[in-house]
């Protein structure tokens, strides 16, 4: 197996970062506004803020994938990138790293911001656990969408994967509400990671990593890159 072309991979990651940085800044700003609403600790502001926060996170994840992968294929810039001295694995790693970085920036800023807002306002601290589960779902949904975008060329399937995986947050929230041991933590003053919470977080993480590994394996076996 040939070694990775690290300098070019880095250049491609930097290229994607440069292409998306303005939109990412907009996502972070919108997310900060949502956190401000949450920080008001009023019922209406909490509802509006959490809704806006989820919308921003979904938009950030979809934007990064659709711009760096789906649009690249549609705009026929993929052939230009693949004509550079890179292998399919180099391309996969550059897209994986590029997407994870461009998603991770708003994701981590908003995740840390959310936890900080919960901890430093009258909101119950147990919401930290609940919000981590929601962020875990969004991370897993992002990985599903990213994997589909890497593996499947159809724009329709990519949109379907993005929308359906993100929309699943609704039943996920409802499901969490049905698990008494979790909903009780969310209402309480303590941050408790009990067995169901750890199991769900572990499942989200394993699913995300497994999907990305599987996609890398599949990508290296593709026969066309244009």
């Amino acid at each position: 197996m040939n070694s990775l072309n690290i300098p070019v991979i880095k250049r491609l990651i930097a290229k994607d970062w440069l292409l998306f940085q303005k939109q990412l800044a907009a996502h972070v700003l919108a997310g900060a506004f949502a956190l401000c609403l949450l920080g008001l600790a009023k019922p209406w502001a909490f509802y509006l803020g959490s809704l806006l926060l989820i919308i921003v996170l979904v938009a950030a994840s979809c934007f990064s994938i659709s711009t760096s992968l789906v649009n690249e294929r549609r705009d026929q810039t993929l052939a230009f990138v693949m004509s550079l001295p890179i292998s399919p694995l180099d391309f996969y790693l550059s897209k994986l790293a590029g997407n994870l970085i461009t998603f991770a920036v708003p994701f981590l800023v908003l995740a840390v911001g959310t936890i900080a807002v919960i901890l430093f306002t009258p909101l119950p601290d147990g919401l930290v656990v609940y919000s981590m589960l929601l962020f875990g779902h969004i991370l897993a949904a992002f990985c599903v969408s990213l994997s589909v975008a890497m593996a499947v060329e159809s724009e329709g399937w990519n949109i379907f994967a993005m929308i359906s995986s993100m929309v699943m947050i609704n039943p996920f929230i409802m499901g969490l509400g049905q698990i008494e041991s979790i909903s009780a933590i969310a209402r309480g003053p303590d941050i408790i990671f009990n067995a169901p919470v750890i199991a769900i977080l572990a499942a989200q993480l394993v699913l995300s990593v497994a999907l990305l590994c599987l996609t890398g394996w599949a990508h290296c076996r593709k026969t066309a890159f244009y």
Partner: peptide
């Protein structure tokens, strides 16, 4: 390599 259907980044 330059191809008729190869595009550059419009933005």
């Amino acid at each position: 390599f330059a191809s008729e259907d190869m595009r550059l980044y419009k933005s």
